[in-house]
Design a binder for these strands. Structure first.
Lengths: 135, 135
DNA sequence: TAATGTTTTGTTATATTATAACAATGTGTA
DNA sequence: TACACATTGTTATAATATAACAAAACATTA
């Protein structure tokens, strides 16, 4: 019972944990094949093993995919248990990526309705510009 | 002089025009290799020819890339001469994609400042949900 | 028109990103 | 134990995108 509860709180499997740890300690978004290269010494040999772990980690909100870069970063936003509302800033020079956590922004977007009055369950926003260092 | 002016207004080259026409008349986002397949009868034989045209068309704002789908749609927002502020709604069932043109939204995002007071020159926003038909 | 720089094209090869299909093993629960 | 389901391992392949180089077309100015 306890164990099932823990599982539902998304205890990670072996491969998932290895790959999450790598992404979590990285200072920059990691690409799938860079991850593969890094975890080969831990016995993860095939792309599919990486992609499966990535899919699951994205699904449960532990990591996010930066779509414009095909790269993955750990979620550092405690409130986002699930990957349903994400916003990032991306520096076009040094490629530094930061997850934005702005209550105002998420509220605005979560409540945004299009012309037909349609509301959306999920969004991904990527801002581009120059970071402090690169300006 | 006149000609140069026209060029600066982004008259399209042969391949760019062929590929833009195809995307523009499509009711759904097109993927690069679907485009390639469709324009082979017009003499465009190699992926690179397609990608080069796509890059240029994106650069001048005639088309947009839907990052989460690796697909391209024509811009139907007369005000967006350059691909610097884009927003789309995507139906997760039928994959219908619509460009959102909301003055409120674009104003809000163009003026959005992060915690460090940083403003961004460019953004891409993708909303996900169910369209009217699929709901 | 000739000379020039720039953009576009054509072409082959290759790199990068991602999934299909199938068998085996592990894990949680009845 | 037995069952359902998630995870793993493995090989092969599909889908997406770029490198490098040469040639042709186009725009500008002398």
């Amino acid at each position: 019972m306890r164990i099932s509860k823990i599982n539902k709180m998304h205890n990670l499997s072996k491969n998932q944990q290895i790959i999450f740890d790598l992404i979590d300690k990285s200072s920059e978004p990691l690409k799938a094949y860079a991850i593969l290269f890094n975890v080969q010494k831990k016995g993860i040999k095939a792309p599919l093993q990486v992609y499966r772990a990535l899919d699951k980690l994205v699904e449960i909100g532990k990591i996010h995919k930066i779509e414009s870069r095909n790269a993955f970063i750990a979620c550092h936003n405690s409130s986002c248990q699930v990957a349903k509302a994400t916003a990032f800033s991306i520096c076009e020079i040094c490629e530094k990526v930061t997850e934005i956590s702005s209550a105002g922004l998420s509220k605005y977007l979560a409540n945004f309705k299009d012309k037909d009055g349609m509301k959306y369950s999920k969004y991904n926003l990527e801002f581009f510009g120059l970071c402090k260092k690169c300006r």
